[in-house]
Design a protein around this nucleic acid. Structure first.
Length: 274
DNA sequence: ACAATATCCTGCGAGC
DNA sequence: TGCTCGCAGGATATTG
């Protein structure tokens, strides 16, 4: 499940391989993942564009191209971006292939077809659903403890749902939400409004620490996730609660519980998280 | 106004 | 062995 650390790892492994390369041709095998414009127009307009940078915003990857165009890709659940040689056999579920001037190919693979691809003109990001309503980047300097406290004060419902809401904070998904809550010692069903200042501080620190740790270990390869070189991350070896329901808590030994919260499987320690 | 649920999709493991 | 079933979850659409 690519979340902020996985998407950032893809970005870092991708950028040096595609920078200043020209997209010679795009081959579409499954047009359904291209959201705008229609696949035919998409291929027509991306042809000849040169990659100027690869950026990340939340879980979105943004390829800035020349002539004020941008390629925006969201990996959703099972999306993969791979740079490989032209001779490499096409993996199953390859939906889109960009032939690059350097002789390599950039391929988009997505088992479940949830991924999203947009070609944007005039740098008009408002054409991409969800991108312009994203909350702050949690690892950027403008994401502050005070700002988080303000948002929490206005929020009802479960704390876990707040963490998963991309318009509140960009980039957190189910795995890191559970890990952050464990790190902060907070129960996923706590009411955001009720958090004491010290608990907000702990949550803020846990968000920054766990996402940075995820990047440092190159992401969580628990099912399908690999980076643009096909390499797995190792954060799955450091998970403390996610995918560990029924096993003992690493801190206190009590059995970890699993419950559906905010529509997502949520694992937590009933003793350490209050 | 907000929260819970259904939806898209495929692979995998459990159970029979 | 081979079938069905439930589950995994990002984000939007729909229902409550």
């Amino acid at each position: 499940m690519p979340e902020l650390p996985e998407v950032e790892t893809v970005r870092r492994s991708l950028e040096p391989q595609v920078l200043e390369q020209t997209i010679l041709e795009a081959d579409v095998y499954y047009g359904g993942i291209i959201k705008a414009p229609d696949p035919h127009t998409f291929c027509d307009r991306i042809k000849g564009r040169r990659v100027k940078s690869v950026l990340r915003r939340g879980k979105y990857l943004i390829f800035t191209l020349d002539l004020s165009t941008m390629l925006v890709i969201h990996l959703r659940m099972t999306g993969q971006l791979l740079v490989c040689g032209r001779e490499a056999p096409l993996k199953k579920h390859t939906h889109l292939v960009f032939r690059l001037s350097g002789g390599q190919e950039l391929r988009f693979i997505d088992i479940r077809k949830f991924g999203l691809v947009y070609l944007v003109e005039n740098n008009d990001m408002s054409a991409v659903k969800g991108l312009h309503t994203l909350g702050p980047e949690p690892l950027a300097e403008d994401f502050t403890w005070g700002g988080l406290a303000e948002k929490l004060k206005k929020r009802r419902g479960a704390l876990k749902a707040f963490l998963l809401d991309q318009s509140q904070i960009a980039g957190i998904g189910n795995i890191y939400a559970d890990e952050i809550l464990f790190q902060a010692g907070l129960h996923p069903e706590r009411k955001p409004q009720d958090l004491k200042p010290q608990e907000v501080k702990n949550l803020y620190a846990a968000i920054r620490f766990k996402l940075q740790e995820g990047i440092d270990f190159r992401g969580t390869s628990i099912r399908d996730y690999i980076d643009a070189k096909g390499e797995k991350g190792s954060f799955q070896n450091r998970l403390q609660v996610y995918d560990r329901a029924g096993r003992p808590c690493m801190r206190c030994g009590q059995i970890l519980k699993k419950k559906v919260i905010a529509g997502r499987g949520s694992v937590y320690c009933p003793n350490c998280q209050t």
